[in-house]
Amino acid sequence: MSKNQEPLPEPDYQYKGEYQPQKEIKDSLGRICYPYLPSEDLKEAVNLAIALERPLLLEGEPGCGKTRLAAAVAYEFTQKYLQNQYWDYYIWNIKSTTRARDGLYKYDAIARLRDAQLMGTNPQQLQEFLGIVEIGDLKKRLQDKKNYREFGALGKALQEHKYRPILLIDEIDKADSDFANDLLLELEELRFEVPETGELYPTPQNKPIIFITSNREKPLPEPFLRRCLYFFVKFPQEDQLKKIIDKRFGELTKDKQKIVEQAMNSFYEIRAGLTIIPGSRPPGTSEFIEFLTALLNRNDVEKALDDLNNLSKKLPLLGTLLKTKQDQELYQKKQ
């Protein structure tokens, strides 16, 4: 730090939504962060979860911005407290086959057994295939079981950090019904162990800030819910969506306000029509962003407006909003 440079403040871990990238940017791991405009209630929920050291469980319809929040908080803390490096931020994407232990660590016992078998091979024959250097590496690897252990996102977040790291557990409802219950100890006491290596990781001094998202594909168990703070992310109103557009697209909307206005009208019309129909899937913010991106990237404004006027016949464009044939046909019938 130079003599004239002011020292960065110690974190107070208050999220205010004040720091926004001018456009989408990537962190050191290639993960994208977009401008994010949280509501006052959502900011309060984030800060309450941080203060109480509890996970924040976010629900809401797909595309309402649940997943983007954690990256937005990491970006703001980076700008406020670090600037020259990215805030420690881990993502655990849940799949139907994900097990709770996968987020903590993986231990490759098969690889260790294979290495042990190799060391039992005739020395001359082993050197013929591997060489002296590789044999030396193999011996060193076998001497420490930790070489066969790899931490997952949760395991990394539960270790000591200079500041409180951020962890996103994304779409927890995709896993089986026992998955959330298998995380109760780790979420309650923020500690874990690795029996295969005998390692114990006690509760870190700087506890992780945890965000968990769910689309309610499966109900979550009561014991799990009791350990979380809950917030339902509402779909943005028109004025809020307009602010999101201005932040996201910037100069791209200049001289194309007619496209933006008509696209928003079409979007909300489609949403209103499908919301009342059971089994349909109204488009969310992410679908609208794709829809508007396709329109704004066209050089011919009049052609874009004509496509909007005939949207029911423009199936590729309509497909950015409506993802099933049934929803597309419902919209076409009303035109």
Rank of each mutant, 00 (worst) to 15 (best):
T203Q: 14
V194L: 05
Y13C: 03
Q332R: 15
Q124V: 15
K106D: 05
K162C: 12
A109Y: 12
R112V: 08
I166T: 07
G250L: 05
I259A: 07
I135Y: 10
P278R: 13
A74R: 11
N4V: 06
K23M: 08
D176R: 06
K242I: 00
P62N: 06
D307E: 12
D182M: 07
I276S: 06
K247C: 02
A263L: 02
V194K: 04
E196F: 10
V301N: 11
Q127Y: 11
F267E: 01
T121K: 10
C228R: 11
K243Y: 00
P21C: 09
A111P: 11
G273Y: 09
L295E: 09
I110F: 03
K242Y: 00
D246L: 01
P38K: 00
L104K: 06
G131Y: 05
N206Y: 03
K95N: 05
D27T: 11
A71D: 03
I289V: 13
Y331C: 08
G30Y: 01
G60K: 01
E76F: 07
K303F: 08
A45E: 11
E222H: 13
W92I: 03
N309L: 12
L225W: 13
L220P: 14
R216W: 06
F288G: 05
K234Y: 04
G250D: 06
T285N: 01
N181R: 06
L138W: 10
E222G: 12
D300F: 08
K106M: 13
P55K: 10
Y15K: 09
L118K: 13
K23C: 06
Q159W: 08
Q335V: 14
L142C: 03
I244N: 00
L185P: 03
E238C: 00
E53H: 05
K23W: 01
P55W: 12
D115V: 03
F129N: 04
Y36A: 03
Y268M: 13
Q240N: 05
L52I: 02
E44P: 02
G279M: 07
E238H: 01
L8I: 09
T121R: 11
E269N: 11
N4D: 14
E128I: 06
Q257T: 09
L321Q: 07
N122W: 04
T253R: 00
R54A: 05
H161W: 10
D102N: 14
L305A: 01
Q14W: 06
N147R: 14
L292K: 00
L52A: 10
K254F: 01
T121Q: 08
Q85K: 14
N84G: 01
